[in-house]
């Protein structure tokens, strides 16, 4: 049961998108999301759809995985669609009570749903092609300008905390499973009973889990200090991130798509 929880969704492969610099991927994701929202007619939206579909194809991540991410967001998607049905002008198709569904409304609803879908697919493309560690490194690197306002160590600390948190998620899941089994062996009933009883049944699991997490934290801190960790000061990286020629190519393609969206917006 606990094993099914996924964190970070990295999908191992060696596509162009996997190899693109994680910092660039993050910046481009933000830029592209903005431009997808700027696309305001069928033609510019079609370009955005085409682009996102090709990103998905190039990423070599199975379509099934992208669709899996859609499932979680489906209720929001449907809700947005229904709300938007009633905001629109044009020919009235159906009307009841004070509401009416118009051709404009349908157009609007479809448009909104496509927009959200693209958003999810594009963000999934980032998380599927970038390891959690690369993501935190990218965040650290992108936030590094904050050092000019005296927040240098804060940026490093934040990134280190994120890395450690990600690293320990599987460890804690394993630990939680062990403790659950141990309490079940003592006759604990975790599956039955009222809500109140079930919440109470969590105490024998949460307390040992909390205690062992604190113990682990102390041990980790000590181990880090033994290896002369002293925060971000003068620290270098084993894996340097470099912008390579192919990153410029990726950047150029994305810039062209953004430009295309604006041009199509103006032309039609």
């Amino acid at each position: 049961m606990l094993k099914d929880i996924t964190f970070g969704q990295y999908y191992e492969s060696r596509s162009l998108i996997h190899r693109t610099d994680p910092r660039l991927k993050m910046v481009l994701l933000i830029a592209l999301i903005v431009f997808i929202f700027l696309a305001k007619n069928t033609f510019s939206m079609a370009l955005a759809v085409l682009f996102v579909l090709s990103v998905m194809a190039v990423s070599k991540v199975p379509v099934k995985l992208y669709l899996k991410n859609m499932k979680a967001i489906l209720p929001v998607l449907i809700f947005t669609g229904i709300i938007n049905l009633f905001y629109g002008e044009g020919e009235t198709l159906i009307s009841f009570w004070k509401l009416e569904i118009t051709t404009g409304g349908i157009y609007r609803a479809v448009f909104m749903m496509v927009r959200i879908t693209l958003l999810i697919f594009l963000s999934s493309a980032l998380t599927y092609t970038t390891t959690p560690n690369d993501l935190t490194d990218a965040i650290e690197s992108l936030l590094s300008p904050l050092r000019f306002v005296g927040l240098k160590s804060a940026v490093h600390t934040l990134a280190m905390m994120m890395t450690i948190a990600l690293r320990f998620i599987p460890t804690l899941i394993e630990e939680a499973e062990k403790i659950m089994n141990a309490q079940k062996a003592r006759g604990a009933d975790l599956e039955n009973g009222s809500l109140r009883e079930r919440v109470k049944a969590l105490i024998p699991i949460l307390i040992p889990l909390l205690i062992s997490s604190v113990r682990r934290a102390y041990e980790l801190a000590e181990a880090m200090e033994c290896r002369c960790y002293n925060g971000g000061e003068g620290r270098t990286r084993m894996k340097q991130m470099h912008i390579r020629p192919r990153d410029f190519a990726v950047l150029a393609v994305c810039a062209a798509v953004c430009g295309g969206i604006i041009t199509l917006n103006i032309l039609f």
């Binding site: 062990k178 403790i179 089994n181 141990a182 309490q183 062996a185 003592r186 105490i203 024998p204 307390i207 040992p208 205690i211 062992s212």
Partner: peptide
């Protein structure tokens, strides 16, 4: 059943 390191289950 007494697991390995059972003291980690005390609460």
């Amino acid at each position: 059943l007494v697991f390995q390191y059972p003291e980690y289950q005390l609460f």
